[in-house]
Amino acid sequence: MTLTIETAAKTFADGTRALCPTDLTVGPGEILSLLGPSGCGKTTLLRIIAGLERPDAGSRIRFDETDVTGLAVEHRNVGMVFQSYALFPNMSVRANVGYGLKVRKVPADERRQRVDEVLRLCRLTDYADRPTHALSGGQRQRVALARAVAPRPKILLLDEPLSALDAALRDSLRDELAAMLRQFRITAVFVTHDQSEAMAIADRIAVMSSGTMLQVGRPEELYHAPANTFVARFIGNAMPLAGQMENGVLHLPGGRLELPASAAGKTAYIRSENIRLDQAGSLEGKVETVTFSGGHFRLAVGGVLPDGSLLYLQHPGRTAPESGSTVRLTIDPSDLIYLADQTSTHS
């Protein structure tokens, strides 16, 4: 099913604008992630798609060619996984999963067959007759997913489905969830504030901030070609190299960088993974802190950027320079991202 959203907006009764007019299309079988910090309007948009929130006048939501804007939530045929999972405590796992089929008056035989199938796909067969409070966090998440997909919804909506889990579980369940969603071959919209989660699960990511959709694209696109400073900072923590540009040369307190002509009038951004320690590098700074994080060292270098800002870099290898020592750095100009100044991006 194709989901089409046209000029969807939401203003709450007290006048707060939760969502500015937004357009979005999600193709059949596509998994789209709404990514942004809390309060950016991503959950509001998800609830508008579900029918749990009534959008402002002029908004249009279509499932394929059908306009569902005025359709009540119970008639929309959406599947939703809630942040808290909201499993029915008065029912067993099987009854939870079968609830949507039961209220739609699916005959008992067919219902049992369908529930068994979904339980098997979600690896819940062994827990079918348990009460929901006797399950672990990961199992509860799978029950919530199974319950949402059992009635064969047109679209699956997931609201921060991993945030209720321990950090240790989250990574393994993230990949498991991605695999399960692919296996259902269902159009899905998935809300998260965690960029690694969005990148691991989604086909495309829509980055949102303060009620506005800033950029929609594949994870690689957002990473390599962010449309503005917010996206550049939010996806992969790009750092601005704020210095004086003169004749194609960027002057920084810690040295100079030669930039191509196209960089004129823009700010250059760099990510920590693209800065290398190099004796012959053109930039010089003092190591402020060194943190070991398994695969690499994370170094904070002062004196390169103006106003006391720190430049972070990732240093692979077994040893790292001590804090307080002076190091030279090199940046490959092809790794730089050039963006117009921040003031013009948040319109």
Binding site: L52, E74, G79, F82, V103, R147
Partner: peptide, 26 residues
């Protein structure tokens, strides 16, 4: 949330009250 999830699963207001609210408020 319980009621909202019942609603997304297709339950009408009365069904939600009968099958989710009342049993859990028992």
């Amino acid at each position: 949330s319980l009621e909202e999830s019942a609603a997304t699963l297709g339950a009408s207001a009365f069904t939600r009250f009968r099958t989710v609210i009342v049993p859990n408020a028992m």
